[in-house]
Each structure stands twice: as structure tokens, then as C-alpha cells.
Nucleic acid binder design. Structure first.
Lengths: 239, 239
DNA sequence: CCCTTTTATAGTCGCACTGACTATTAAAGG
DNA sequence: CCTTTAATAGTCAGTGCGACTATAAAAGGG
């Protein structure tokens, strides 16, 4: 921070890019925009854009999300910094440093193309490949982070509407982890963790489906899970 | 990423700042440099500096560490991105975006002032207060991250020399967490976790201390701890 | 040279958590 | 009315971990 001179070094452009996840019909979806200009014109990319001189990267992320995808009701949006990508050559035109964010949305309001992007669309995670720039890597990093944070935080409720059933919460885990969980055990664990969820007191039952109606819960006040809810070991490790 | 124009926005300066931790005599220390210029001249700060046009923030972090503190044998250095601080007004002179890193060093080679900084010094963590810029906050964030990562990764070995005793490894946890651990239980847990440590086969005993000499171990190949090694609950939560 | 101190290592006991599984309840659909 | 579906309740055994006791191997002091 010494040897300071305002124009001693070539300036950088700084962008905020977002990997926004949601669950639709039990499938993990990510929000993508279609690029209208070169480079990578016509390719899909993560929404994002330049950080303005008077705002932090977090503010830029929220603003760009609204501008590019029409998602303005970002009240229930969980936004969290992922990491910063600064390798030279990320952008073929100039030096761009991207602060990447991972975001989670409860329901999935339809996205529309905004002012900047030609089109915005929810895309199944597995179909989001060959994105522009290094966005494949950013998206994979974000997905890994979300999966890991489900283990030791209450993040899963950020995928759910304000009131939800334990079955819906379990679906979040099963979808993100790609693994099936035992329902009674999941229920026992969630209810035994203080502050994870709290029961909705009234006539809190949701009907409309086939079987017995489920009780409704709200997200609790806890942020971390102690002890964590570990994902089933795929193979080998007896832990 | 559209509406792209090289000079459409005021450029940003990008720096890489480091919170470098080590353990000396059972006390957590952090590496600080004394600022030689305004603003904050004479104040202590985290080492760091401008990212050059042809390098990534990670490279800049390693380079600045050597330039400012004389620490060149960064072979055993564990370096990991923390997060990026981009709030306007962080630097009173211009818009600076800082990519912050947390780093861990096994032993503590003495630091010297480098080309940029007036002086570099290892400081006990608790004495590192009122740093320049927003470095107090960055340092606190880094410390929190290191403490949390000890729970579910093998990061603790990064504080140890290539060969170490289980007592030394336990000291790492106790120092960073500020809590005492039961020695037999710690030992059982570490040895039961495959890939955490591996015994040094030969006449692997370290003498010189008072009591029975301890067996030596090396860092294993595992990166994560399954199940995690949770820090003792300070109070309340029965987990 | 013995005995105390110090530290490493080995082992025990009980509780809490979890995985696997079975049983019951309450709705919808034919 | 009976079947299907899904939620909820409960059981049981294995495992991990906290708390604790016991033994082994060195240094140091008389």
C-alpha cells in the first residue's frame, strides 16, 4: 500500500458476477443471461456487470441482478461472496477482475431479459455448460460452496418459501447433494437442532397433495448447525 | 459484462493484502508492516500491495510478501483467498479494491523491513489493533476463517514444521481456538482420521524436552476431516 | 542411584448422535 | 370402502466422543 501513485499501474475493470441458484420441480437451476455482444456473443454467461465508482461489489451484484434479469424482489435473496477471479487473460479485451457471488432464491420468478442482456433464463445446472469467459469454473465453484455450506449452516432454508414443510426442506438437501436421505432421520435431526426451524403455530397444515398433510415450519434464528448435518459418504470412508 | 467500453467507468486500483499467521511460543502471531507514508503513516498494516497488470492476485500476494517482509522461503506457505473488500472510501485517496488472503506459516522466520515497508514485525494477534485502513476488520475475518477451517480441514498441519508431534499439533488447535483439549481424546481422533497425519517410521522420537519423547508425524494426504473435529462448545449448546 | 516430575501413550465407561428399519396416522383416489 | 401416498412416531444397534484412569519413558534433583 506504499509507493502509491494513482496512475502508477494500468487500471483494472472490476465486475460483480453472480451464480444464482433456485430449485424448480426438484432440479437445481441457475440463472443465465445470453450475451448480445462480442466476445462470446450468443453464448450464455452468468449475470453480472461493472462495479460503479460509488458502490461496493455487493451493491453492484444486487443492482445488476435486477437490471439484467428483471428480478427485483430480491428480499428473500441470500447473497454471499464466493471469491475473486483475477487471472490475466480472463477477458480477451482488457484486464477484468471479477468478484463472484453465490446467491440463493426460494421460488423461481420467471426471468426476463433486461436492459443489458439479450435474454435471461433459468437453466438446469447440468445443462449450464460452455459458458462465456471462465464462468464454467465460477459456476462449479459456487455449486461446490453451496453444497458444502448446507452441511454446517442453515442455508437450506434460503431455498424455501417463508413457510415450508420438512419434506420440502429435505428435497433441498437431496437435490443439491444428489443423494437420498432417510425421511424420519432427517426430520429428527432438523427438529433436534435448536433454531434451525420453528413450527408455525396456527392451523398450520398444508393440504393439496396426495398423502397426509404436512406441518408448516419457518426458518429459525440460528445460522450455523451444531453438530453439522453431514452428507452421506458416497463410498469408502466409514465416517 | 455487456455495454462494454474500456473507459466507460472510472478505473479501480486492485491490491492484494495478506493476513499471515504463525505460532510462536504458543501464541498466535500475525505479520504486520509499519507504513512509511500517508495516509496512516507510522501505523501498522497488513502487508500487501498493488496487483500488477500481468499477474493474478494470488501471485501478487506472494510477491508482496517477499518484498515487504523478506520472507522468501514461501515453500511451506499455505495461502488462501479470504474475500474481497470493495466498499467505497476504504482508502481516502482513491478507489481501491483489496483481495485479501489468509496465510499460515509453520515456523516464524524473523521478518525484516523490505523495499516498500519501513519495518515488518511479528505481532501477537491480541496486540494487533488499530491498524491502517480497514485492516482491523480484514484481520478479524481472517482469524475467524482460520479457526473455523481447523474444524473440518487438515489446515492445522500448515502451522507445523514438516515433522511434528501430536502434542505440537494439539497446541495449534488450543492456541487458535483458545480452548484446552483432552490429550488422549485428541490423539484418538487425529489417528482415527485417515490421511490426517502419518507416522514417521524410523527412530522417530523427539527428545530434548522433559518427559517421555513423542513420536513424530508428517502431514497426511487428506484435505478435509470427516467427520469434523469440532471445537468445544463454549457454553450452552449441548452439542 | 532412587524417586519425583513430566509428558506420551493406552485403555475404559457412558452418553449422544446417527443409520437402518418398522409402525401408525391422515389425507386423496378409485 | 379399500388402496395408495405421504407424514409422523418409535425402536435398536453401532459409532464417535467427552471424561476419566492407568501405564510407560524420559529428565532432574536429592
Amino acid at each position: 500500500m506504499d509507493g502509491y501513485d494513482k496512475y502508477a499501474y494500468e487500471p483494472f475493470a472490476v465486475t460483480a458476477d453472480l451464480a444464482v441458484f433456485t430449485l424448480r420441480a426438484g432440479v437445481l437451476h441457475v440463472l443465465l443471461v445470453e450475451r448480445g455482444e462480442e466476445p462470446y456473443a450468443g453464448r450464455w454467461a452468468l449475470p453480472g456487470g461493472f462495479v460503479r465508482p460509488d458502490e461496493a461489489a455487493e451493491s453492484a451484484a444486487r443492482r445488476e441482478l435486477g437490471e439484467e434479469t428483471g428480478l427485483t424482489d430480491v428480499s428473500g435473496l441470500h447473497l454471499e461472496q464466493l471469491r475473486t477471479y483475477s487471472e490475466p487473460g480472463r477477458d480477451p479485451r482488457m484486464r477484468v477482475v471479477s468478484v463472484a457471488f453465490a446467491a440463493l432464491l426460494p421460488d423461481a420468478p420467471e426471468a426476463r431479459g433486461g436492459s443489458d442482456a439479450a435474454e435471461a433464463r433459468w437453466t438446469p445446472y447440468d445443462a449450464a455448460r460452455e459458458l462465456a469467459f471462465d464462468h464454467d469454473r465460477i459456476l462449479a465453484d459456487a455449486r461446490g460452496r453451496v453444497g458444502a455450506k448446507l452441511e454446517y449452516t442453515c442455508l437450506a432454508t434460503a431455498f424455501c418459501p417463508p413457510e415450508f414443510t420438512l419434506g420440502e426442506l429435505q428435497q433441498v438437501y437431496e437435490t443439491v447433494w444428489g443423494a437420498e436421505l432417510d425421511r424420519p432421520n432427517f426430520r429428527r435431526k432438523v427438529l433436534a437442532t435448536p433454531g434451525f426451524v420453528e413450527a408455525v403455530p396456527g392451523a398450520a397444515r398444508l393440504t393439496g397433495g396426495r398423502g397426509k398433510p404436512a406441518a408448516l415450519y419457518r426458518a429459525g434464528t440460528a445460522a450455523a448447525l451444531h453438530p453439522p448435518l453431514l452428507r452421506p459418504t458416497p463410498e469408502g470412508r466409514p465416517a
